[in-house]
């Protein structure tokens, strides 16, 4: 009963935050509500007994998306200062019926399939039965890397494609000075970084390692590491640069290239493609993917071709 009430509270806040993020009078309020919506989603995942998703949503959905949206808002304001004016929306008369129909469709789909019996041949049952053959204890990591490695390979490719497309449409002259805090040399900032950055690295490595037996994994760890990078960019320790850097580009490609090589290696022994042999292969893969994911997300944030270290 208490559980149901908690669920109800989470759901009511989700709906309220969604409404606010779409219809709040000012855009800035929309953005804030949208970021909090991501956090509420992460609570919903925790309530649905899926801690891996809760971690991913908190780090990627709320954290990285929030940073990206806020920096985009900053750039829009720099071009056109009156972003925040209340929108004069003209309501289409068709909007409400279409929305109701779409919601109803989802409801029918969901209510028809909720609470049906597990089929004995369900993929999830097969995963749990063969979990010991992968050497992993977390079934989700096993699905991501062992059973459906091709999905994860394509996932990191999508991430890279998004970065390349974003770089292609970003005009370099828009790259700013504006994301850096006003006084990057305040002593307190150095002290803050000295605590936060090692902590971020430590927690992301823990998340990466934890991914094999409990909740965690390369994507959560990479997002967290990227958050550390975002802090460094905001405090001016890393500044956007338009000079392509070989080291950084290698870092961006590291995860994908390792994945491809590791995926092709089993072919030499006559095994199928992407049959990852041992846990060490999975650890190597996850570590390189974490680095690439962190760099990709960081570059999506700064919007630049590469980064320059500034002695601060």
């Amino acid at each position: 009963m208490l559980g149901l009430m908690l669920d109800a509270v989470v759901i009511i806040s989700l709906v309220g935050l969604a409404l606010q993020s779409l219809y709040a009078p000012s855009l800035f309020r929309s953005i804030l509500h949208f970021v909090v919506f991501g956090l509420a989603m992460s609570l919903a995942w925790a309530r649905l007994n899926t801690p891996d998703l809760a971690l991913a949503e908190a780090a990627i959905g709320a954290g990285v998306t929030g940073a990206l949206v806020l920096v985009a808002f900053r750039r829009l304001i720099a071009i056109q200062p009156d972003q925040d004016k209340p929108s004069t929306e003209s309501r289409s008369r068709l909007a409400l019926p279409i929305a109701l129909g779409a919601g109803l469709l989802v409801a029918i789909l969901g209510l028809a399939t909720v609470n049906i019996e597990t089929l004995p041949a369900a993929a999830g049952v097969a995963v749990l039965n063969n979990l010991s053959s992968t050497g992993l204890e977390n079934p989700i990591t096993a699905v991501l890397l062992s059973f459906r490695g091709i999905d994860t390979l394509l996932e990191i490719t999508v991430l890279l494609a998004a970065l390349l497309s974003a770089q292609a449409v970003t005009r370099p002259d828009a790259l700013e000075k504006s994301i850096v805090t006003q006084n990057p040399d305040t002593p307190l900032i150095g002290g803050l970084l000295a605590i936060i950055i090692p902590l971020t690295v430590l927690v992301s490595i823990h998340l990466l390692k934890a991914g094999s037996e409990s909740s965690g994994g390369a994507f959560q760890a990479g997002a967290l590491l990227a958050a550390g990078g975002v802090i460094l960019a905001l405090t001016g320790r890393l500044s956007p640069s338009q000079q392509p850097s070989l080291r950084l580009n290698l870092g961006l490609l590291l995860g994908l290239l390792t994945f491809i090589v590791m995926g092709l290696l089993p072919l030499l022994n006559g095994q199928p493609l992407l049959a990852l042999p041992e846990p060490w292969a999975i650890y190597l893969l996850e570590s390189t993917m974490m680095i690439s994911i962190a760099l990709i997300l960081l570059l999506l944030f700064t919007g630049s071709i590469s980064l320059r270290h500034r002695r601060g």
């Binding site: 969604a18 409404l19 779409a102 109803l104 969901g110 209510l111 909720v114």
Partner: peptide, 17 residues
């Protein structure tokens, strides 16, 4: 079931928005 209903409501809100 509660979360299915929530999904339906959120999807409707999203489409409207």
């Amino acid at each position: 079931t509660l979360y299915v209903v929530a999904a339906a409501v959120l999807f409707g809100i999203g489409v409207d928005g």
